[in-house]
Write a protein that binds this DNA or RNA. Structure first.
Lengths: 229, 229
DNA sequence: GAACATGCTGTCAGTTATTGTCAGTAGTCA
DNA sequence: TGACTACTGACAATAACTGACAGCATGTTC
């Protein structure tokens, strides 16, 4: 196996272990010596991987993705830049910042003439209507979706009737002017949609919901007849 | 220098030469033997680089970008996926296909559990209003912007007055419901905006416009007070 | 504090991968 | 045809990688 491949494998092995892992364990799994493992970790860190090593504890990989060398066509990079700009402009501040980080990371590794090409990309996002809900809420909702946590919300429906519900957030849909949470509603015992701008209060529960999100998402898609994107 | 670094350098050297380059020239520039160059080209091709080699001619790199190994955080990947989905849904068909290619390429190199994570990403793009202009026009406009070609358009302004103009397309702005070309108008001798849905006919000229697009874009930004994205 | 677990670094010899040289085949252009 | 070029195989020289060992620093546990 090539060294490059082994480095990617190492990332994956690290990902599998949620908690800290001793270098000796990693070396064992990869079939290499401890000394070589240390050298590999060093190389990965130099390549930008977020690996934290602490004496007496082991190694932890901060959640993320390591991409091997990839080739993109001009059109694909245009799509990537345009998409990131849209997110930068229209999503919540935290996700927008992440989108700008993506552009910066890609820009940082491109030769100067191409870096300039990203800045001067001919595709722009026109200003849109302001988002009706604050940054903090959207970030909390995304976090709850990712970690499969229950949400407690104070919600007002289109007629102004206020209810308090516990829901299992499955997805966050971005429309031109509104954001909508797709969730299983414990109150109604079914899938419901909640416009973010009608949520009066929101609290993330520490309790995980009892089914896998991917399964719920698929179920909802079939119920609503929504194809995969 | 590591081999991995040299492979990226090779891509960059290939980029610099617009026309076909002989392998011997590339080997010389990189300070390696011809035989090693052939081996490097082979490796790059195996990694997905679009390098065409023809006996008697030399090597040509199809326009594109080679990214070295990169680390993205969870949030950055979410932003990337969401942005690509937006482009996939809202831009013209060709760019949309490129966006789906981006997702497929990234998905292809991720371990299975993460590939599933991309499909099941909790951020969705809600359906929007249909685009008021055909795929073909948008693709042609993007092409003209990229190659700095003049466009001849039949345009109707908001009052219905029809004019025929030659313009220098600088950028394409995506609003929620319309697409707008930013261009220097030869008829008006100034920057003008043209809604794509009001263009009755469009023809790409073979003539390049006489100034650099990046300069025009900057000039327009300053005139209109639009910050860099 | 003591015992232990772990990260981290240096050295060196053996192993593996990479490289250059040489020789040869075949396609393209004028 | 001749000049130029891509491409492949074989092999020896060279460079990089690896494992084993020794040692130190830092953190955890009792």
């Amino acid at each position: 196996m090539s060294r490059a491949q082994r480095l990617l494998d190492l990332i994956q092995v690290l990902r599998r272990h949620r908690r800290a892992v001793a270098g000796a364990v990693l070396a064992e799994e990869l079939g290499i010596s401890l000394r070589t493992l240390y050298r590999d970790i060093e190389t990965l860190k130099a390549q930008g991987a977020h690996i934290d090593g602490e004496a007496g504890i082991g190694y932890v990989l901060r959640p993320g993705f390591m991409l091997p060398p990839l080739m993109f066509s001009e059109e694909e990079i245009e799509a990537l830049v345009l998409g990131s700009r849209w997110v930068s402009d229209r999503a919540d501040g935290i996700l927008g910042k992440a989108a700008r980080n993506v552009l910066a990371k890609i820009g940082a590794v491109l030769p100067d003439d191409l870096k300039y090409g990203i800045d001067a990309s001919g595709l722009l996002i026109g200003p849109g209507e302001p988002i009706a809900v604050g940054d903090h809420e959207l970030a909390a909702i995304r976090q709850a979706i990712r970690t499969e946590r229950k949400l407690r919300i104070d919600y007002a429906d289109e007629h102004g009737n206020a209810t308090q519900r516990t829901v299992w957030p499955v997805a966050l849909a971005f429309f031109d002017r509104v954001r909508v949470i797709v969730a299983w509603c414990e109150l109604r015992d079914g899938y419901r949609h909640f416009r973010c701008d009608r949520i009066a209060a929101l609290e993330t529960s520490s309790e995980r919901y009892p089914r896998r999100r991917a399964v719920l998402l698929k179920e909802w898609r079939i119920l609503r007849g929504i194809p995969e994107q």
